[in-house]
Simulated scan of single mutants.
Amino acid sequence: MSIHLIRHGQSAFNAVFFGGADPMIFDAPLTQLGASQAQEARHKVVELGIREVVCSPLTRALQTARLIFPTEDIHVVAETREHLGHSCDVGRAPAELQAVFPDIPFAHLPDIWWHQGELNAVGVPVEPADVFEARMVLLASALRARDARPLAVVCHGHVIEALTGTHPDNCGIVELRD
Rank of each mutant, 00 (worst) to 15 (best):
V126H: 00
R146C: 11
H108E: 14
V53K: 04
H158K: 11
T166V: 14
G157R: 00
L143R: 05
P150T: 08
H43L: 15
V76F: 03
G85M: 07
T59W: 01
P102W: 05
E72Y: 12
A21E: 14
S56M: 12
A107W: 06
E52G: 11
L151T: 04
V137G: 12
S36K: 14
D111W: 06
T71F: 10
G34R: 02
R51M: 15
L30Y: 01
T59S: 06
P125M: 12
Q32A: 15
C155Y: 07
R81Y: 09
R60K: 05
S56R: 07
A134K: 15
D89P: 00
D147Q: 14
L30K: 00
L67Q: 05
L33E: 13
L84A: 06
V122M: 08
H43G: 08
C55A: 08
Q39I: 12
P29E: 02
R51C: 12
L109Y: 07
A95V: 14
M136L: 12
Q98G: 03
F69Y: 07
T64V: 10
V45Q: 14
A107F: 08
Q39H: 12
T80W: 04
P70G: 10
V137H: 13
A142K: 11
P128Q: 11
P57E: 01
A38I: 02
G117P: 08
Q32I: 13
F69G: 01
A21T: 13
I160E: 02
C55I: 04
E40R: 08
D22S: 01
R42F: 10
V126T: 05
E47S: 14
V76C: 03
R146W: 09
R51T: 12
Q116N: 12
V137Q: 14
F106P: 03
V46C: 13
A99Y: 04
V53G: 03
S87K: 13
A140I: 05
T164E: 01
A142Y: 05
A21C: 10
E161F: 06
P57G: 02
G85V: 03
V46R: 14
D22E: 05
G49F: 03
F106A: 05
D27H: 01
C55G: 04
A61Q: 00
Q63V: 00
T164Q: 04
